[in-house]
Structure formats: structure tokens, C-alpha cells
Design a protein around this nucleic acid. Structure first.
Length: 1165
RNA sequence: GCCCGGGUGGUGAAAUUGGUUAUACACGCAAGACUUAAAAUUUUGUGGCCGCAAGGCCGUGUGGGUUCGAUUCCCACCCCGGGCACCA
């Protein structure tokens, strides 16, 4: 090479790119002798616009890492591919009137061109494309596996529908009620769709974010913010599910309980059930049937008819043989009753060989007019069956279907419902709703319950409610509202009471009204909320609007554990009652505050309560004493706040029980206060706004909030009005209180199942077939892929049907099972399908028999480093983890998580600070930059701009800095001398083995006094650059290289070894210029397959330190000393310095702090 | 509202287990050299204020605090970016 030539990137970059490709320098191989490293970019969607300068930033980073790891002797996998299915490609195709198949191919070619000139070391032999049938056959295969495991299901629930893109959307595709892609308002539209049960994995997706490796490190080295975003998205809440029974106010049913063979009203669950029903206000009759041990049909039936009130309000609950009696009663009576519940009804003789022969088998007749029974019981028939009674279950199921009644299978407390308590029976006759709450500790404060308007109970109960039309109107209105209207927290609450029904609070038996309101979401929790207005802001707002009662059951406890007044752990508490006085001005809207001088507290007048003095009394006294105002009149109690803090002035841990009281001054009468009081605090009049700004204690702020905003407090504290839980701390008894009301402790998630259907053309067909006879039939795996037909017209229909539905030739097929005519599923998969597993395919991109060969998967998995945009936090990265975990469960992959280390790329903004976009005209094209400055300059600049994960504006003018750096490196070759000849003329050919650098240690630098200083710089540079690449601090890595080059530039000459070492360090960042200079040094093989240099610790250890000397915290002098000099000697040396003597002479040295190798700090008085 | 990040020169930014005088590296700017001139290159300077200078004072969003010493720790607040949001 001609070292006099000017640096011309255009000349050298193409040349080396060609040679690298020709030499297959970057092809990955499974080499069992080598450690592997899989570094992955989020593959692009090849848009028609091509790359802008921001896109390659992440690719350059992975390229650096990839080259760095290769130089560490690892077998590196650094692949690239294209994610080309989905709406953008389809819309682009529609716009340009081409078929997406063609436009995607064109765009991919253009993208590849643009990527190639950057000099990235991708192994293009592993390129994949999600729209390639050879690829999506495996996407379809995964779907089939999900389907077979019951994780893909057909749903008819209303979903998010984008009217512009004309397709259904997943929850994740909706942002603030708008389509994430086009910004259109999303509508709810009922339609048929395929949904993936990602919620089954919610717990693992959440928990595995924090799993630890055996060495204690977190397995997933991910940005904090992404983990947090995923946690938010999964949204786990722990809480209680508690039953509230419902009771119709009118038409309260009367119960007739009929016992069975050998039974009596005193047997089994009868006494208990009677008591429970009576507790709920029902009239209960339990006839004692004649001859229970030898029952006769007519005798028993007549007995019931003659002794019980049987009318339209009667519900009959019958056990065992009683069930038969009951049915006969109804048939004979031929009159409407209110309902029939059959509990473990007796079996027809001969139904089962196992059934023992009983007298009643002969004495009873076994013919029933089921249709008539159903009609007379007004369709309200339920059959309860105990799972343990194997032979009866099938019979009862059959009975239930003959009666067109509900079949309820349950595990009885004792076989055949012989337990003393059988809750399943009670549950069956008393309608109830289950609420979900994270705050069961507030259950004694429930004053109403709220159902979501869509809750199934609402329509069930509707016929029996008084204000039917009002309710129907409200439901209709709720349905019409868009997602955005319904979920706006700020809008005023709306709702309607369900008149004629009450719910019973299981904690205290209180009856509370039942409402429907759209602030309760049908698809979270149970769709029912127990409202506690005193301790939930939403409930409070609702209660205030509709005049519902507010019942306080928790008094706040504030524990000060940080700051100056944090409680001191070793001190005991002194407990005290006190009054907090909120005092209003006699004529203005101002309140009296007290600013305490000693500890800086800003609050209200506070005074202790003596004995059982009331707050009103003590308050009036304190106001007089502390402020002098004499006309204070007590108006009302505001509430209580308990508080624990350290009282700086009194030096005790205080446990204060504050009673907040409101006073008004009648006039301005005011006497002077004592000197002592004046010393203690200033009193000031402030407007409400100023009060809010001034308050600097949480307990006082709560007192003010109670006064100003009302008695709503949603934190923790002490329970009151809560029966046996009164006095307990709310935090400690959540589970106890749950169990005491028969509730269960459960987890709920915000995550919803993944709506997986798109009503568009350009996606993977869902490989299912609908057959009239067989239902949904999966396409046999051997028939995969189900190819997307190439057609002329593929515009969306907007009807909720995919355009594929019109392609009859494609749609109409034979059922794989029964061969009768059937139709293909016409929905396609969402854009996120192909990207949910693509990283696996890179390991084995051409495999026709498997998604990935297990051996190859074992070698390459998991991805060691994954680099991409943060916008994928809650979509791609959740979906991919979900699929990966599923593939792990079915044995396709060997790891539970796909991506070990994840790194964000910070966006590159336009020069104007806005997002780069055609719209703003601020797009910078990498091709232009490379043409003008060279790829190496662009690479270095993008890395040097700032922290990698930070969003920074592009600045073409700033690029000259890194270009100058490259030119400095280029010119450095002139300083390279041959040590033996001391000549700058280097031999043209070198024998490679002469400077073999295999093996880890690099001792290759010559000992030479002239060159010694440079050795030191270079070794320091190795250390810093190595650690910076490992932490992805590319900006400081580049600046370290700049510092090194600046230093080397100052020296007379450098050795070849030194220069080559520098080139190796530069190689990952600027691969072309490094390679050019490397070869010009006479090397015959690429710098990119050499060994990364190792630094020599002994060369960079500092032996001498600059010790600074401070006097009273100010730096006054410094001196050089051996790094290991002892503390005593350092102090002596410091004190001998004349400048220091000047400062300490004649003064008492109070303290001397010596930090070895760093400083001496002298404190004088 | 809740939860995460983050506020340092004219600009992009360095340095935080509290410890060598904050602002490395680079851009920009100013002055000088080279040049007929320009570009390129190169040298020097570049936080603010006061000063001829020596030097002094102030400075890491604001206000307090802890400490011999705080950009780093604590408290309160302001601003910017991101996530979630009527999720019970």
C-alpha cells in the first residue's frame, strides 16, 4: 500500500467489503471447540422509504460487539433478516398498486444494498424473511401446536376494531383508545376471532423477569425500564375474591325443603340450610315426611301438598328421594312454582347395578313429564351432583338435560350431600356475585356494590327489577361509548341503581344497594366491585354524586422513616392524643398556619389532649394560648390521623393520635402571646393554595385533605367499626379478613388474551379448516404451509371478513377428517407472529424437517445480546417470551427465556430535534453520508454521539470530528518505524508467524525507552475500550481511542507492534480503515480474525499519586507521593508544605483525614 | 394520579462504593501560523462574574440538610422524557 496516499474511504471500503464476502470471513459455524456468541438485531420491516441514518445505529453496535467477540475467539452468530408481513407492507402495496409479494422483494433488495455499504459483518447465508413460505410454514406449525394445547381458541367477544385499517386489533395495538398505527379511534365490534391464551403464561412472564442464576445474578440483563413496562402491562394484583349474596326485594321466595329416604328435617344439611335461609329473611318449611324408612309415593306427595304452601313464590329444594317426591308433587299439583333444586336425586332402579335395592324402588313410579315439570318450575331448574358419586353423576347429567335445567357438578362436603353444611346447595338457591378487591380490609366500609354494565347477571336479573327501562337505556349507552369515552378517569361518574335488589355484606350481614356503572370494567377481576367510598377515590366520587353513604373504617397511620424526623429504632415511643386545629379567618378565605422554628415543621396549631378531654375543648384552649385569638368557635370534627415520628425538640419517638378539628374565628380579637410561644413558632394566615404549598408533613397534609377534599383515604392504617378486627392494622389482616368472610386469596392480571386474527390479506393464513360436520379441524402438519394465494385484489373488505374469503378456489377445501366440503379459516395472523420466534430460525435457517435442529438450538441458544428499540417493550418482547416459553413446554427449545441481555437503541432525531420523517423533511440518508464521509466515519460518529440508549439529534457538521480522528490514524502510519533498522521503510512482505499473536496474552510490544510511554497509553486504552464495549459505552470507548491517538501523534515515532495494537482496537469500530492499514503493515490475513489484545496490569499501575491537601474543606496545595505511602507519612508531608503551614499556623488542628493515595484533609479551628 | 428514568459549558456530552482543583473527548466560537486567497491542516484560548494583572468570588435544575469534604447521600419542590392509567 502506498502510505503517502490520502485517506479515501470510497476507494478502500468497497474493496474490503468485496474481499470479506469472497473470503466468507463472517460465516458462522457450530464449532464445538469454541464458545458461542449470539448477537441479534431486531430485524427491520423493509419499508418502501429505505433506511434513514437512525436505523443502522443498533446494527453498528451489534457489529462492534460481534467483531469484538470474534476477536475473543468465539464462534459468533450475527444474522439479519426481514419482517415483511403486516399492514405497512400491505398498505404500501395498495398505494403503489403492486402486489406485496413484489414490493417486499424490491424493498428487501434496497435495504440489503444500504446495509452492505456500512460494512456490517452479517452472515447473509442465514438471511430469513417472514413472508417466505419456507419460513411461515413454521409460524403456522407453532400455531397448530398452540391450538392442540388449547392455547388458541375461537372467541365471539367484541374486540377492538380499527375502522381505518379495517381489522381487529390486539389490546397491545391500542394506545389510549386509538389504533397505534393510524391513530383512528378504536371501536368495539363483536366478531369471530382467534385468540391466544397468553394469560395462561402471565404468572411466568412476570416471575421470570426476576429469576436468578445460580450465582445470584438476575438471568435477564434487561433495562430496568423495559422490565418495569412489562410488569405494568401484565399488571398483577393480589387480592380477595369474596361472594356477596343477592336478594330480590319483591318476590322473596319461600322455600320448601324435602328430605329423602330415611331422612328427616333434623338430618344432614337441613337444619343448617333452614337457618341460613331464614337468616336471609326467607320463610322456610321443612315437612317431616311420613314413614321415611318405608316411603310410599302417594302418601309422601300428598303430605307435601297438604302441609306446605306451594305457589308461584315457592322454591322447592329436594334431596335424594325427596327429589322424586318433589317432581311428583309438581306434576300432581299442576300449578306454577318459583323453582326447583334437585340435590343428588334418587336413581331409577336398574340404572346402575351398583345401586342397592331400596323399598322405594317398588313403592314409587318412575315416569316423569319432564317438559311439564320444567314449565311449571318456570324454567328455573337446577340439578346438583356430587362428583364422588360416580354412578349417579351420569344419571343426573341426563336428568338435567331432560329437565332443560342447569347441571351443577360439585364436590360435596360429605358423599351424597350428607354433610351438616353443604354450601353448594345454599349457593345454588341464593344468587350471588363475586367481587375482586385488593382491599378486603375495608369490607366493613362497603356501602354499595357495582356491577359492570355488561355483567351477565344484569340481564339475568332484569325481568325482576323495578327500573328495567332505565337500566336498559344505561347499558345501551355504555355499549355505544368508545373505549376512550368509557375509560376517561376524569369524566363524571355515571350509573344506575338496580332497584329491587340488594346485596348482603358477608362480613356484617348488612344489606347494601346494587348499582351498575361503567367505571367498573367487565373484563377485569370479576366485573363486580365492592364499593368503599371512604377508602377508594373512585367509589368516593361515585358516592358523592349519587348521595350514597360513606363509612370510615380505617384511620391513617403515618410512619416517618426517612429524613430528620425518622423514628429512631432504639428509642421507645411516647404515645399521646393531640388536636390539630384548622382555623378559618373571621372574614377571608384564609387559614392559620404555624411555622415551627426549631425543626422547620409547617403545619397547624397542635396541642395535647389531657385525660379524656375533647378535641373541641383542648383546641379552643390551645388557640388562645399559642396564637392569642380568643374568638375561636369549634365547628366540627374532621377525622383522625395517627402518626409516628421522631420529635427533634423533645428528643422522643412520638406516637401521636391526632384529632383534626375545624374552628372559625368570630372576630379579630387577639391578645399578645407569651415570649416563649413567640420563640417557638410564627403564625401566618394563608390562602388554601398557600397552605397546600407550605405543609411539609404527611400527617398534617392528610388532615388538610380530609378537611378540604372529604373523608376519603386510600392508604393503610388502623381499622375502626370492623367488629373483631377493630384496632388491627389494615396491612396485617387482609388475608385473615378474607378467610373470615369465606373469600379466597387470588391473583388477577391486567394482561388480556392475545387477539390473533387480522381481517387482512398480507399475513400468515391461520392453518385451520371449518367443517360443518367436524367443526374446527387443524390442517395436517404434512400439508403445511398453507400458502397465501397470490391474487390481484386484496383490499380489506371492512365487513370483518378477510379478503381471502372471496377467493373461492382457495377457501373451499375438503375436510381433512371426513372429506366432506369445508372452508379454510380466512383470518390471517398479526404482524407480530413471525417476529415472535425468528431468532430461532437463524440457528438453522434451511431446515425442512424441523423448526430448528435440537443440536443447533442447544449450541446457539439463547440469544446473548439483543439490541433494538424500546418501543417493543410490551409487544414483540412479551409475545416472543410467551411463544418461547410455550416452545420450551413442548420441548422445541431448551431455555426458558429467549434473550439474555437486552439493550435499547436511543433514537436518532432529525437535526431539528424532531423525529426523522418524510413529513418534516429532516430525513438524513446514510447513502449520502457514506458517499461524503465514508462508512467508517458514519459508524464512529453514531457511536460517539452520546450514550447509546439515549435519544440524540443528528448533526452532520459534528461528524468532521471523527473524520479527523480517522485521518489522524491514517497519518500515524508515517510514524511507524522498524525497530531493528530504525527505518520508516517497512519490509513489503512479512511472514505471518513472525508476529503470531494467537494465545491470550499480548506481550508483543517491544521494550524500548523511547516507546515506553506509548506502551503505557496503549495498555490503558486496551483496558478502557474493552470494558466500554462490554458495557456498551461506545461513546467513551471512541473518546478513549481519540485520546490515545492524540498522545501517539505527539511522539516522534511508534513501533509497528504499537500501531498494529491500535488498529486492532479500532477494528470493530472502523473495520475498513483498520483493515487497510493492517494490510499495509504487511499482514496477509484480516485484522478481524486476529486476537483482541490483553493489557498488562503492571504497565498501567500508577506508582506515584498526586495527593491533594485540603484545609477546612478547601484545596490549598498538592504534592506527589508514592501510591503506597502510609497515612502517617502523608500527614507529615502535608503539614510541611509552606502553603499549608500558612493556613494552619497558630490554629488548633482539630482533625486530620487521610485517604491513602488521594488526599489529606486538615480541619482547624 | 401511580411507577420508572433524567436535569452538568454556546452544543453532543465525561466523571457518581462521597475524596486529586468539576466540565474528559468532540463540535462550535475567537485569535495566530501556512496560503495571493479560500479550503484543508496546525498552534493557542474557551463555565460565569470582577480585575491591567496577580488573584478573588460564584458555579452540576431550585431550596434546605448531613459531612472535614456533596455533581454523587437525605428531605421538599420544579422541569423534561418514558410506561401504566376508572385495573377495584
Amino acid at each position: 500500500m502506498n502510505k503517502d496516499a490520502k485517506y479515501d474511504p470510497a476507494k478502500i471500503e468497497k474493496k474490503w467489503q468485496k474481499k470479506w464476502t469472497k473470503d466468507k470471513l463472517y460465516q458462522s459455524k457450530e464449532d464445538p471447540k469454541k464458545e458461542k456468541f449470539f448477537v441479534l438485531d431486531m430485524f427491520p420491516y423493509p419499508s418502501g422509504e429505505g433506511l434513514h441514518v437512525g436505523h443502522p445505529k443498533g446494527y453498528i453496535a451489534t457489529d462492534i460487539i460481534s467483531r469484538f467477540q470474534r476477536m475473543h475467539g468465539k464462534s459468533v452468530l450475527h444474522p439479519m433478516g426481514f419482517d415483511a408481513f403486516g399492514l405497512p407492507a400491505e398498505n404500501y402495496a395498495i398505494k403503489t398498486k403492486t402486489n406485496p409479494i413484489d414490493s417486499v422483494a424490491k424493498n428487501v433488495a434496497r435495504f440489503k444494498e444500504q446495509l452492505e455499504i456500512i460494512g456490517l459483518d452479517y452472515d447473509w447465508s442465514r438471511e430469513i424473511n417472514t413472508t417466505d413460505p419456507a419460513y411461515y410454514t413454521w409460524t403456522q406449525w407453532i400455531f397448530l401446536q398452540l391450538y392442540k394445547k388449547g392455547l388458541a381458541y375461537e372467541s365471539f367477544e367484541p374486540i377492538n376494531w380499527c375502522p381505518v385499517d379495517k381489522t381487529g386489533l390486539a389490546n397491545e395495538d391500542v394506545e389510549n383508545g386509538r389504533c397505534e398505527r393510524c391513530g383512528a379511534l378504536v371501536e368495539k365490534k363483536p366478531m369471530r376471532q382467534w385468540v391466544l391464551k397468553i394469560t395462561d403464561y402471565a404468572d411466568r412472564l412476570l416471575a421470570d423477569l426476576d429469576i436468578k442464576k445460580p450465582n445470584g445474578e438476575t438471568l435477564l440483563d434487561w433495562p430496568h425500564s423495559i422490565k418495569e413496562a412489562q410488569r405494568n402491562w401484565i399488571g398483577k394484583s393480589e387480592g380477595a375474591e369474596i361472594e356477596f349474596t343477592l336478594k330480590l326485594a319483591n318476590n322473596k321466595p319461600r322455600f320448601v325443603l324435602i328430605h329423602g329416604y330415611a331422612g328427616s328435617p333434623e338430618h344432614g344439611f337441613f337444619p343448617w340450610l333452614k337457618k341460613e335461609l331464614e337468616k336471609r329473611g326467607h320463610e322456610v318449611q321443612v315437612p317431616e315426611l311420613p314413614h321415611p324408612n318405608n316411603p310410599k309415593e302417594s302418601e309422601q306427595v300428598d303430605y307435601v301438598i297438604n302441609n306446605c304452601t306451594l305457589d308461584e313464590n315457592t322454591v322447592i329444594v329436594a334431596h335424594s328421594l325427596g327429589g322424586v317426591v318433589a317432581q311428583k308433587v309438581i306434576m300432581k299439583l299442576n300449578k306454577k312454582i318459583s323453582g326447583l333444586v334437585l340435590v343428588g336425586t334418587a336413581i331409577t332402579p336398574g340404572f346402575s347395578k351398583e345401586a342397592k335395592s331400596r323399598p322405594f324402588h317398588k313403592n314409587f313410579t318412575w315416569d316423569f313429564d319432564y317438559a311439564r315439570i320444567n314449565k311449571l318450575a318456570q324454567g328455573r331448574v337446577a340439578v346438583l351432583s356430587d362428583t364422588k358419586e360416580i354412578h349417579r353423576v351420569a344419571f343426573l347429567k341426563d336428568l338435567a338435560s331432560k329437565l332443560s335445567g342447569a347441571f351443577i357438578e360439585t364436590v360435596a362436603m360429605k358423599e351424597h350431600f350428607n354433610g351438616a353444611e353443604e354450601p353448594a346447595v345454599l349457593k345454588c338457591v341464593t344468587p350471588s356475585v363475586s367481587v375482586f378487591t385488593t382491599r378486603p380490609d375495608t369490607i366493613y366500609g362497603v356501602t354499595y356494590i357495582v356491577l359492570a354494565p355488561e355483567h351477565p347477571w344484569v340481564s339475568e336479573l332484569l325481568p325482576q327489577l323495578e327500573n328495567k327501562s332505565e337500566i336498559e337505556a344505561y347499558i345501551a349507552q355504555a355499549k355505544l361509548a368508545t373505549e376512550i369515552e368509557r375509560t376517561d378517569a376524569k369524566k363524571e361518574k355515571t350509573g344506575v341503581e338496580l332497584k329491587g335488589i340488594k346485596a348482603t355484606n358477608p362480613a356484617n350481614g348488612e344489606e347494601v344497594p346494587v348499582w351498575i356503572a361503567d367505571y367498573v370494567l367487565a373484563d377485569y377481576g370479576t366485573g363486580v366491585v365492592m364499593a368503599v367510598p371512604a377508602h377508594d377515590e373512585r367509589d368516593f366520587a361515585f358516592a358523592k354524586k349519587f348521595g350514597l353513604p360513606v363509612k370510615t373504617v380505617i384511620e391513617p397511620l403515618v410512619i416517618r422513616d426517612q429524613g430528620l424526623d425518622a423514628i429512631k429504632k432504639d428509642l421507645p415511643f411516647s404515645e399521646r392524643r393531640a388536636v390539630v386545629c384548622i382555623i378559618k379567618h373571621w372574614s377571608e378565605e384564609k387559614y392559620l398556619m404555624s411555622f415551627y422554628k426549631k425543626n422547620g415543621w409547617k403545619g397547624f396549631i397542635v396541642g395535647g389532649l389531657e385525660g379524656d378531654e375533647t378535641a373541641a375543648l383542648a383546641g379552643a384552649r390551645e388557640i388562645q394560648e399559642e396564637t392569642g385569638y380568643s374568638s375561636a368557635v369549634f365547628v366540627k370534627d374532621i377525622g383522625k390521623v395517627h402518626s409516628q415520628f421522631y420529635h427533634e425538640v423533645k428528643k422522643v419517638n412520638r406516637f401521636a393520635h391526632f384529632e383534626v378539628a375545624y374552628f372559625e374565628l368570630k372576630n379579630s380579637d387577639c391578645q399578645d402571646t407569651s415570649e416563649e410561644e413567640k420563640q417557638l413558632h410564627d403564625v401566618v394566615w394563608l390562602s388554601p393554595r398557600e397552605v397546600e404549598e407550605a405543609i411539609n408533613r404527611e400527617d398534617i397534609r392528610l388532615a388538610w385533605d380530609f378537611f378540604k377534599k372529604g373523608p376519603c383515604f386510600s392508604g393503610d392504617g388502623f381499622l375502626i367499626n370492623s367488629e373483631k378486627f377493630t384496632g388491627k392494622h389494615s396491612d396485617s389482616i387482609r388475608k385473615d379478613i378474607t378467610l373470615s368472610v369465606g373469600g379466597q386469596w387470588v391473583n388477577k392480571y391486567k394482561l388480556r388474551d392475545w387477539v390473533f386474527s387480522r381481517q387482512r390479506y398480507w399475513g400468515e393464513p391461520i392453518p385451520l379448516i371449518h367443517c360443518k360436520k367436524c367443526g374446527v379441524v387443524p390442517v395436517p402438519e404434512k400439508d403445511l404451509p398453507v400458502k397465501l394465494p397470490k391474487v390481484k385484489s386484496y383490499e380489506p373488505t371492512g365487513t370483518g371478513e378477510s379478503p381471502l374469503a372471496d377467493i373461492h378456489k382457495w377457501v373451499n377445501v375438503k375436510c381433512p377428517k371426513c372429506k366432506s366440503p369445508a372452508k379454510r379459516e380466512t383470518n390471517t395472523m398479526p404482524q407480530w407472529a413471525g417476529s415472535s420466534w425468528y431468532y430461532l430460525r437463524y440457528m438453522d435457517p434451511k431446515n425442512k424437517n424441523a423448526l430448528v435442529d435440537p443440536k443447533k438450538e442447544k449450541y446457539w441458544a439463547p440469544v446473548d445480546m439483543y439490541v433494538g428499540g424500546a418501543e417493543h417493550a410490551t409487544r414483540h418482547l412479551i409475545y416472543a417470551r410467551f411463544w418461547h416459553k410455550f416452545l420450551y413446554d413442548i420441548g422445541t427449545v431448551s431455555t426458558t427465556e429467549p434473550f439474555m441481555k437486552l439493550q435499547h437503541v436511543g433514537l436518532i432525531m432529525g437535526e431539528d430535534g424532531r423525529k426523522m420523517s418524510k413529513r418534516f423533511g429532516n430525513v438524513v440518508n446514510p447513502d449520502d453520508i457514506i458517499k461524503a464521509y465514508g462508512a467508517d466515519t458514519m459508524r464512529l460518529y453514531e457511536m460517539f454521539m452520546g450514550p447509546f440508549d439515549q435519544q440524540i439529534a443528528w448533526s452532520t457538521s459534528s461528524m468532521v470530528g471523527v473524520r479527523r480522528f480517522i485521518e489522524k490514524v491514517w497519518r500515524l502510519q508515517e510514524k511507524v518505524i522498524d525497530l531493528k533498522t530504525k527505518s520508516t521503510k517497512l519490509p513489503k512482505d512479512r511472514v505471518v508467524s513472525e508476529r503470531s499473536d494467537s494465545g491470550a496474552s499480548y506481550a508483543g510490544l517491544e521494550e524500548d525507552s523511547v516507546l515506553g510511554a506509548s506502551n503505557r497509553i496503549l495498555h490503558k486504552t486496551i483496558k478502557k475500550v474493552t470494558s466500554d464495549i462490554n458495557t456498551m459505552s461506545f461513546n467513551t470507548a471512541v473518546s478513549t481511542l481519540m485520546i490515545a491517538v492524540n498522545e501517539l501523534e505527539k511522539t516522534e515515532s511508534i513501533s509497528r507492534a504499537q500501531f498494529e495494537l491500535l488498529l486492532k482496537l479500532i477494528a470493530p469500530f472502523a473495520p475498513h480503515v483498520a483493515e487497510e492499514l493492517w494490510y499495509s503493515m504487511g499482514n496477509k490475513t484480516s485484522v478481524h480474525i486476529t486476537t483482541w489484545p490483553v493489557y498488562d496490569e503492571s504497565l498501567i499501575v500508577e506508582t506515584e499519586a498526586n495527593i491533594i491537601v485540603q484545609v477546612n474543606g478547601k484545596v490549598r496545595a498538592s504534592f506527589k507521593a508514592d501510591i503506597n505511602m502510609g497515612e502517617g507519612e502523608l500527614e507529615m508531608r502535608a503539614k510541611e508544605i509552606p502553603e499549608i503551614k500558612k493556613w494552619i499556623e497558630g490554629k488548633e488542628v482539630k482533625k486530620v483525614i487521610v485517604v491513602k493515595g488521594k488526599l489529606v484533609s486538615i480541619v482547624v479551628v
